[in-house]
Amino acid sequence: MTGSRERVLARVRAALADVPADERPEDVAVVRDYDRAHAGGGEAELFELLADRLVDYRASVREVAVEPGGDAGAAVGAAVAELLAGRGAGRLLLPPGVPADWTGALPDGAPALLRDDGLAVAELDRADAVLTGCAVAIAETGTIVLDGGPAQGRRALSLVPDRHLCVVLADQVVASVPQALARLDPSRPLTWISGPSATSDIELDRVEGVHGPRTLDVLLVRTG
């Protein structure tokens, strides 16, 4: 039913009678003299800022240091095993494309690995945690962006389980929102995550833990 399409468009055009007929949309000036990034410095400073901002929003942060020429995958695997050892085994959900190394150090069957091949929502709900990578991380705002690419999978995977373990690699970290948008593809469904789920709806005071994962563990992988 598009019956009102022409009616709405005609009303819009009539309302804009004061706009000169020869003005094109791009002629309306937008001065973009704001900063491309607020945070300066090199990789080390960005990592520090990202960690600081994540902790500020009650995410837990674990730095995974890798020696130059060392095995990053194995180091992630060891960190994942340590994080999951603390809290009972249960089931760990894995999106397609998670490197085998990341789960390589887990004891057999603890947790049980649940690989997504189009699982029903009820099955996702049985997972205790999910392990993903990400597309981009923004240091200034403590934000991780998932785009459904390798090791991320569909959006429901990082939503339904109560705990989200997210691996951030060094080359995925940018300083600012403008830098992040430039790296992202709008045609892919994106999820921007800044800390665990939260609400400010009771007396405008922030409380963590509503419908999304109540625990967010971020593994920051750094070489050197």
């Binding site: 189009g118 705002t141 959006r155 429901a156 709008p186 469904p189 994106l190 921007w192 922030r206 999304g212």
Partner: peptide
């Protein structure tokens, strides 16, 4: 928006989608 609205550097979740994505949502 997030800084003006909830006084956060970024709100916990932002979703973007374009039409439909096969196998997702």
């Amino acid at each position: 928006l997030p800084r003006s609205s909830t006084g956060e550097r970024m709100n916990p979740y932002t979703s973007t989608w374009t039409g439909v994505s096969p196998g997702d949502g």
